[in-house]
Design a protein around this nucleic acid. Structure first.
Lengths: 217, 217, 217, 217
DNA sequence: TATGAATGAGGATTCATTCAT
DNA sequence: TATGAATGAATCCTCATTCAT
């Protein structure tokens, strides 16, 4: 799934390699666009760079996307929403304690976003929200708010079950996610500046530990 | 202090088109630049817009800054570092408990950054780190790392004093700050999408509550 | 040959706005550049003018030349050197008297430079030497000095053969060329001021006559 | 006289040095303009550079000259014409042979132009003729043609006196001057490229020798 | 479908010129 | 008279977009 988030058609392997599946092109372009856009931002990205990385020429991009903006929007719209959907499905089918579900969701988010090509999306969206208001609204509603609601439901469940202290669930939900969001964004931005790298396991473990400790009765 | 960090000129009301303002101009331009850059990002910002907002014309900017990039770098370098310095001073002179100091620092950060024109800086830096590697390094070392070290010291103090559980202090420091960082960045990005606004007080209170609860013995 | 030095395209009459012309374009642009640069000088020339004269738009120039300066340098480097080479070849294969060779070289220079699009180069180089020191050095060595050496060799030959009086050959060489150089430069500059035109034949004949008279035993 | 061509008021020495004679300013500016214009050409010189070299600020130039173009034209119009006048005076009062007068004029030209700040004028005029047609016409008539006529008169005198062979006097006049003109122009352009320097004495001697040898009966 | 030459609007930058002091 | 801050028109250059092949 993460592999398909911005995916490369696996079926390509099974075909004669000199014959590119034509329906693979858009995804290859989206994958390239994600990398470049999230590295440089929308305005600083040249279609030429995306094309080169996708192994095509500039003109080809226009066969699949109306223009640079459409490409950018397609990128945002077609990617991260599904992660939320997965989270929601997980929450719905989960039968254990709220603590366990919360931990599970935190770790799952990292697995699906922090460790896939999707890492770039949140930073990109933060950076470009001002330039694409409608897109920002879409993202805010379909990703941010929906994510918060999902987490809020879990906390609500925990409070009802007597696992958690009574707290403002929406705010507590944001606080459960914000260290993740920040880590995703900052790691993308400053990876080149962190010689030691970023010890993710440690960070996640400690967050879960502190947070659950903090919210438990 | 925050008011002067990147200050907004006052009282230029009914003057002829231009006066000798050599001393005030750079700061006026920096203030305008901060607003536009942090709204739109570096590449999408037109110097013309900065100029207009500063009440001058394009050419004037070049009297004080070599070019767009120099203006951007000056903006980053001359602003937020001082906030950290203030935090450090506060920590050094503080005589109360680690709990209280931690809370104080969290609230102070918000007061000095979240509620001044500096809000835009972190988002801007995140967005542009990839395009300005040396600047990113500077920021990472002089702001991010220094901020984390400051907070780590506080936590260390709390552990020694028996207030806090033994934890990895550097990681815990990051976790104390990350909800703030994320809030600053996300609020800048999505303010237009949050009709209810963002209830800061609630957010800060809950963070402090959960965090201190989580880290206390 | 002179016709191809910086050639003028032919037959582009009734075509759609643009065709694949990748091969021809650079030369067409260079030809246009030579005309405009040598009329106006480097700084006063607008790329737009060159483009218009070449039948393309500004942007096209940048497909073939990195910038205005690169275009200018290519122009100088790729043109007049070959004239010298031709003179050298002529001198080497020539079997007649030194007098005849000298006369032949003088007339040939005029035919290859004075009467082709290359006329503009010497004036242009004189005018811009101060702004392009490395280019000036290149030109001075590959064109000026080499030309003088060529002529000096001829004079040396004449002295050895007893045709010419013993003179400082390098200085005499410069003096054989300088009326040509000056005529090329001045005619380019003042053509609009000479209603009668410039009687080249007369000028060349008289120069050859006086010079050979002057240097002969 | 050459010292006054583009002159510095000598009287300045006699005044308190802190008090600039106001009427010295225009000449100081002209002197600075000559240097910069003849180094870089009209379009490539910045008024700022002229101002700096003249020890004033840009604004001051506008107190004495309407604009950049007026400054340039004043420079050309007020300088070299007088050299011709001097030559004419010399010719008129000269009582010796035509040979001697011709030699005298050649050497005098070098002394008055080649070795004073006026060297730059011919190169400058050649370079800019295309951009300033009326100025070119003025220069061509008042300097070039007048100079040629002067020299033609001398040659005519020599022919009449039986010193010189019968030749086309106007063409012969041009040929007497062109090595000088070329030397002035080329030396200005390529001085930085001639490590040995340019042996003027040798060049002039040889020219006079060859030319008089060539034209004599 | 894919290419890539060509376009041209847009924006950074320069610098001659103005004008309040 | 002299300054120099400010202006804004002019020009280089970039790059998203088009279109003939």
């Amino acid at each position: 799934m993460p592999a398909t988030a911005v995916k490369r058609r696996s079926s390509r392997a099974a075909r004669p390699r000199w014959h590119r599946r034509k329906d693979a092109r858009p995804d290859e372009i989206l994958a390239a666009a994600l990398e470049v856009f999230s590295d440089r931002g929308f305005a600083a990205t040249k279609l030429e760079d995306i094309a080169r990385r996708a192994g095509v020429t500039k003109g080809t991009i226009y066969l699949y996307f109306a223009n640079k903006e459409a490409l950018f929007k397609a990128l945002i719209r077609e990617t991260i929403v599904q992660v939320i959907a997965q989270g929601e499905a997980l929450a719905q089918s989960f039968t254990g304690s709220a603590r366990d579900l919360l931990e599970r969701l935190v770790r799952e988010y990292w697995r699906l976003v922090g460790e896939t090509s999707l890492v770039g999306i949140p930073k990109l969206m933060m950076a470009e929200a001002g330039n694409f208001p409608e897109l920002a609204r879409f993202y805010y509603e379909e990703v941010v708010t929906r994510g918060h609601r999902l987490m809020a439901g879990v906390i609500q469940r925990g409070i009802k079950a007597g696992e958690f202290r009574p707290v403002n669930v929406m705010v507590a939900a944001k606080l459960a996610m914000s260290p993740l969001m920040h880590a995703v964004v900052a790691r993308k931005a400053f990876s080149a500046c962190m010689p030691e790298g970023f010890n993710v396991a440690n960070y996640l473990d400690t967050h879960i530990d502190l947070y659950l400790h903090g919210i438990s009765k």
